[in-house]
């Protein structure tokens, strides 16, 4: 295993006390594997990725659990050592490439800085390598690009630069947090293709965080679905799309207007909204929005358990269909 999260819990200090943003997330990323994390805003998918890099600002911290990266626990690693891993063995690309590039330095400047920090290359050699990387991510006239500033580039080009920077230090794990959300569809297709090519060439593992199930279907090997700070379902991408077991995953699948689907009268939707972190419902966190909620769902929180080989679900109905039914009838 390249990366293994064990019961990771991330909390933030707020005016109203401590808020748990990620509550006991466990997941594993194998070598060369692409894991997709899906969920809606506030489900904790981005905080999960930021926790791995420990980029939680002053108010956030990892309260419990382990983050094992090649055997080392990143949760306990001293800051100085972690800095060498960030941008080195683990690289990250973000949704908004404009805010992640420094506006007052040239692209070349920022790229060579990263290269000098994490490799043995210096001066001209580092600059030459930077040009090579820009070429690799499909940037036309890479020499000219080295001298340009971020503001003069389009969104797609900026994201390419971010990818070049992320990959320049040959990371073992690339964390991509909504890498194409801010881009137009035709540009998104370019970036996804590029990521696929580079994955094959460099053999890096990718953690892809997105709300777009289309992107997941296109890229991921394994998928983790998150809801309200917890993993609610985890399985391989084919099983997830063909046989989703958690009612939330099912609802998510049905509520996407499909461009290939025939026109239907009404689109399936999930009623209500994601509960606020400060006010989680009792029992199962999805229960107030769930069409199948029974008395047990309101009383007891289900755990994430395997229901089939390689298919984990956090749902009473999926785990104990017989008993769940009985209890539902009791409740009615």
């Amino acid at each position: 295993m390249l990366l293994e999260l064990k019961d990771m819990k991330t909390v933030f200090k707020t005016d109203r006390g401590e808020v748990t943003s990620v509550d006991g997330v466990s997941l594993r990323v194998g070598k060369g594997e692409t894991i997709g994390i899906v969920g809606e805003s506030g489900c904790g998918k981005s905080v999960t990725s930021l926790s791995i890099m420990r980029l939680l600002g002053k108010s956030g911290r990892i309260k419990e659990g382990e983050i094992l990266f090649m055997g080392q626990d990143l949760a306990k690693l001293p800051e100085a050592e972690l800095r060498l891993i960030r941008g080195g063995d683990i690289a990250m690309i973000f949704q908004e490439p404009m805010t992640s590039l420094n506006p007052v330095f040239t692209i070349g400047n920022q790229l060579t800085e990263a290269i000098q920090l994490h490799t043995d290359l210096r001066g001209k050699a580092a600059a030459g390598y930077a040009v090579q990387m820009l070429e690799k991510v499909g940037i036309p006239r890479p020499e000219a690009m080295m001298k340009s500033y971020p503001h003069s580039l389009s969104g797609g080009m900026r994201q390419r630069v971010m990818i070049a920077m992320a990959l320049s230090c040959k990371p073992k794990l690339l964390i991509a947090d909504e890498p194409t959300t801010a881009l137009d569809v035709t540009i998104q297709a370019q970036i996804l293709n590029l990521m696929k090519e580079l994955r094959e060439e460099m053999g890096a593992s990718i953690m892809l965080i997105t709300h777009d199930l289309g992107v997941i279907a296109e890229m991921a090997d394994k998928v983790v679905v998150m809801y309200a700070g917890q993993v609610v379902e985890e399985t391989d991408v084919f099983t997830l799309f063909e046989q989703p077991l958690h009612p939330y995953t099912q609802g998510l699948m049905k509520s996407i207007p499909h461009i290939e689907a025939e026109a239907e009268e009404t689109l399936a939707s999930i009623p209500g909204a994601v509960p606020p972190l400060t006010n989680m419902p009792k029992g199962c966190r999805f229960q107030p929005r769930c069409a199948f909620a029974a008395a047990r769902c309101q009383a007891e929180a289900p755990a994430l358990l395997p229901v089939q080989e390689g298919h984990d679900v956090r749902c009473w109905m999926a785990q104990e269909p017989e008993q769940w039914k009985v209890r539902k009838e009791e409740a009615v």
């Binding site: 569809v185 035709t186 289309g214 997941i216 279907a217 296109e218 799309f241 290939e260």
Partner: peptide, 15 residues
């Protein structure tokens, strides 16, 4: 056509 084509299809079998 390109726009329709660029849209990722939520079906991993079609990737």
């Amino acid at each position: 056509q390109a726009l329709l084509n660029a849209y990722p299809i939520p079906d991993p079998r079609k990737r």
